[in-house]
């Protein structure tokens, strides 16, 4: 289970302010803290804190300050592909591009860039018209992304399909469809593409967010989830990720498996 720490995002007040003031401290604080929590990647998202045309510079700055304190690879999270490209040029370890929808123009922009920089790509099962409701159409979009990976020479293991989970309080019927999508995506190619979710989305504006997050994580892992953008400092949640690894026979059991999981 690959944990992508979600905390470095301009939507959070401390990160947004720090980005405007070019103050590296909150970035570096969260980089270290998320790694200690068990993160394998750091998601990096400027949010709306800087204007669009300044984003490439902002991503360069963020990549640099994070790499000063952390060896974790970065997950560059933006819809501005110039910003992502600027960040990729500075990344010392293979990064993850977050994200591209199943739209031809965007695929043509992002997939060759990923191959050029040896990066992985998160592909969203949606197009301009939005997020489909059922598993069947989500998987159809996933198939277009899979065919594109084959076309552009991206390793299938470097494609992460995100079937897009929505908040359970307002879009409850999506949750089981996303589970079914995860299961089917694994059958599209051999080797199969990997899968990812923006996990915290499932519990937006619900009480008991932590409980909903970790319950859904366990369910999704059982049907083939490989990675999640999530709260790497929710210890109960990381415990579920570690325990899932054991119960799926992906990591060899030891009494100290919770500790071992975080040491990697």
């Amino acid at each position: 289970m690959i944990i992508i720490g979600e905390r470095i995002n301009g939507m959070f007040k401390d990160i947004g302010e720090a980005l405007r003031n070019k103050d590296p401290k909150p970035f570096q604080h969260w980089a270290v803290k998320q790694e200690e929590g068990g993160a394998h990647y750091l998601d990096v998202n400027s949010g709306p804190a800087v204007p669009t045309d300044e984003r490439p510079e902002a991503y360069k700055w963020m990549v640099n300050v994070l790499q000063e304190v952390s060896k974790l690879p970065l997950c560059l999270d933006s819809t501005n592909y110039d910003a992502i490209q600027a960040g990729l040029e500075l990344c010392q370890r293979p990064a993850l591009i977050n994200s591209v929808p199943a739209e031809r123009a965007k695929i043509e922009r992002v997939f060759p860039m990923a191959v050029q920089f040896n990066a992985s790509v998160i592909g969203l099962t949606m197009d301009k018209k939005g997020i489909p409701k059922d598993a069947e159409n989500r998987v159809a979009f996933a198939m277009e992304l899979v065919a594109a990976a084959d076309e552009f020479g991206l390793n299938m293991e470097d494609l992460f399909i995100d079937p897009l989970i929505l908040p359970v309080n307002v879009a409850q019927e999506h949750a089981p469809e996303v589970l079914e999508s995860l299961r089917q995506v694994k059958m599209l190619a051999n080797p199969a593409p990997r899968t990812v979710l923006g996990l915290s989305n499932v519990s937006q504006k619900s009480p008991d967010r932590h409980l909903i997050n970790r319950t859904y994580l366990a369910m999704a892992m059982a049907v083939g989830l490989d990675a999640a953008i999530m709260d790497a400092n929710d210890d109960d949640l990381v415990d579920v990720a570690a325990t899932g690894q054991i119960l799926l026979n992906k990591s060899i059991y030891a009494d100290s498996y919770l500790k071992v999981f975080r040491a990697h």
Partner: peptide, 11 residues
Amino acid sequence: MGLTGLEIYKQ
């Protein structure tokens, strides 16, 4: 053993 969607598509 079934075929994957990609294998069929390529043919």
